[in-house]
Amino acid sequence: MWAYIVRRCAVGLALLLALTLVTFALFFASPVDPARFACGKNCSEQQRDQARKALGYDKPVYEQWGNFVKGVVVGRDFPADPELRAAAPEVVTHCEAPCLGYSHLNARTVNELVKDAAPVSISLAVVALVMWLIGGVLFGILAAVTKGSFMDRGIVGLTLVAYAFPTFFIAVFFLKYLAVKWQVMPYPAYTSIEEGGIAAWMLNLLMPSFTLALVFMAGYVRMTRAFVLESMTEDYIRTARAKGLQGRKVLFKHGLRAALTPLVTMVGLDFAALLAGAIITESVFAYPGLGLLTVQASAAYDLPTIIGVVILAGSFVILANIIVDISYAFIDPRVRLG
């Protein structure tokens, strides 16, 4: 077992390294000079050169990548240029490991930016997850047990329609009608638990999280429905039924458990992907999470922030994969051999 875990983690680490490498390659393959945007607009040649040095853009890409990886492992100091650091020690910023970089435009380390934004994205993701999971599983079971009925079609159809309308359309519709025109919902503005307590935090998250949950709901309804139906035809269920167990009992005791296991995998991966920020939901609702941070960073061509967030998001997914795989290994010993 331990050997498997170690092996799986090693693969994950290699993947992470590849992720950083590919990210650097992608963003630096372009003919756009990243320093051009680093010091804002009316930037003289000389300022640009200085910004280039401060950010380390004067070095070849592989060296910048090396510095980045080193920063992740042991932390690093900014500006990147040792000369600049020596000349003005008071402006040096230390970025603790795991250092994701330094945003010249914000004059803050990417870690600090992420630390501010992450709670917003995590809150959104958690509440949305709870919503779509409860909604998806309950409606999925309901659809499965009423298979072929009006109810079944209605549930599957409605969730599909909700999925089919673009997220930003639904978000704007909610805001403009529920919050502004009819005022049946409070206008959402992110409130942290420290600021406003659980109730305010929750209340403000309802609309954006629901918007986000709608995107996933359809998939989970269909998945649950299919798994439940499938497991109902499995032999052991038939056996249980033949032994005289009641329909509902069979469903919950045997069918559901088998059906929900693959669901857990999906949840893990979807949730991990969401942790990096729901770009559109956060943009429309102006929730200052990682998604909005990315939107701002790409608008301003703030490369260090973009790269930092991309790599952070990638590592969430890689980590989730490892966790899922390892938990499978516990459940099903055959996995380890594969």
């Binding site: 502004v180 025109k181 005022q183 206008y187 956060e282 943009s283 429309v284 102006a286």
Partner: peptide, 19 residues
């Protein structure tokens, strides 16, 4: 501060209704 593309319009939506 609500830095997003839609927030300005939505501020004014709320001001119109004087929420």
């Amino acid at each position: 501060i609500d830095p997003s593309e839609t927030s300005g319009e939505l501020f004014n939506d709320r001001l119109i209704t004087d929420a």
